[in-house]
């Protein structure tokens, strides 16, 4: 069986009605030379034919650590054609023990023309039964998703940094059925994970608490196109510290005790959020990372002197963000709180 280390082609073309049979044949031909593994269904909804190849590349990397059945569905709703095509392929990697190849299946679809009702059916028809369903929505989220499909999704993954408008999709996200098993996972939120952990750790140190009780403002530096990352981080700070937004345009907040907090966001090439500074009456806590670095430089200016630490900042490649999100088991409660606090900052 050809391993995906060799090629990122779409795979072998198959008739849509024969996918399961062809997959079965694929494994039978292999005659036990490798082990098929699957712990989840990873469904990807994307736009444009080119996205198929890009996602095949991503899934090849993803399956090194996460055994899954990948179902990649690319849509071209504006195409004059009205047709559906499918391909199957396998991603094989040597197991950690090194003894055997472990392989994962990928089923790719290109849906051209009207796709109403087609996507849920394609997914329902090709899931590996009883395993969790992670739906990675790479397209615009501008209309409600099929209700029956949503009740089947365990994690709804998206990257709000890729959107050009936020108000409508965020409103849709908040309408997802409250009782369903679904958890929303924003890769944009994942970009701020290490910064959030670092900021949270500030509050774990009793020495810092007297300073942090009187925060006066914060500053963030984000890369062009990643203002949404900074907004989510600001929303998280506000939600966790119970700051009330009083002036969205000027990023003015009010603490529970009535103090004013001033926020500022600058744009500069670099990481999504490359710098965050918390200014207190008696101290300044600053975290910054250089381009391409996996670490934050933490600089604390305290009354008794300055301190410097090097802290883990994580990677920002999509595959790393996805990996990070899948390793987290928690629900989306904190994210939704942060989103609620951040929503007024989004102007469109």
């Amino acid at each position: 069986m050809a391993g995906s280390d060799v090629t990122f082609s779409r795979g072998m073309p198959v008739e849509i009605g024969q996918i399961q049979r062809e997959l079965k044949k694929l494994w039978e031909e292999d005659a036990g030379g490798s082990t098929r593994a699957s712990l989840m269904n990873l469904a990807v909804y994307c736009e444009g034919e080119a996205a198929l190849t890009e996602n095949t590349d991503l899934i090849s990397a993803f399956t090194r650590d996460h055994a899954c059945r990948a179902i990649v569905v690319a849509v071209e709703p504006d195409s004059p054609n009205n047709r559906a095509q499918a391909w199957i392929s396998a991603h094989c990697h040597m197991s950690r023990a090194g003894a055997k190849q472990v392989c994962c299946e990928q089923i790719s679809f290109l849906l051209e023309g009207s796709v109403k009702g087609v996507f849920p059916n394609i997914l329902f028809s090709n899931l590996d039964s009883d395993l969790p369903l992670y739906l990675w929505w790479q397209a615009r989220l501008d209309r409600p998703i099929d209700e029956q499909l949503l009740t089947w999704v365990d994690r709804f993954i998206f990257d709000s940094a890729s959107w050009s408008e936020w108000k409508k999709p965020f409103a849709l996200l908040r309408e997802f059925p409250a009782r369903s098993r679904l958890t929303v996972r924003d890769l944009n939120w994942a970009r701020t994970l290490y910064l959030r952990q670092t900021l949270a750790q500030l509050y774990d140190n009793p020495e810092n608490l007297p300073h942090l009780d009187c925060v006066q403002g914060w500053k963030m530096t984000c890369a062009p196109g990643f203002r949404s990352s900074a907004y989510l981080l600001a929303g998280w700070l506000a939600a966790q510290l119970k700051w009330k937004l009083v002036d969205a345009a000027n990023l003015l907040y009010e603490t529970v005790s009535g103090e004013t907090i001033r926020g500022k966001i600058e744009e500069k090439e670099g990481a999504a959020v490359s710098r965050c500074e918390i200014a207190c009456k008696t101290a300044v806590f600053s975290f910054s990372r250089d381009p391409h670095s996996d670490f934050f430089h933490a600089d604390y200016t305290l009354p008794d002197g300055e301190r410097h630490y090097l802290l883990r900042a994580g990677k920002e490649e999509t595959i790393d963000l996805l990996d990070q999100e899948l390793m987290m088991g928690a629900k989306h409660t904190v994210y939704l709180k942060a989103l609620t606090a951040a929503l007024p900052l989004f102007t469109k």
Binding site: R83, A86, S125
Partner: peptide
């Protein structure tokens, strides 16, 4: 009416 296997 609906869709099965990519076809209406």
């Amino acid at each position: 009416a609906g869709a099965i296997g990519g076809k209406d």
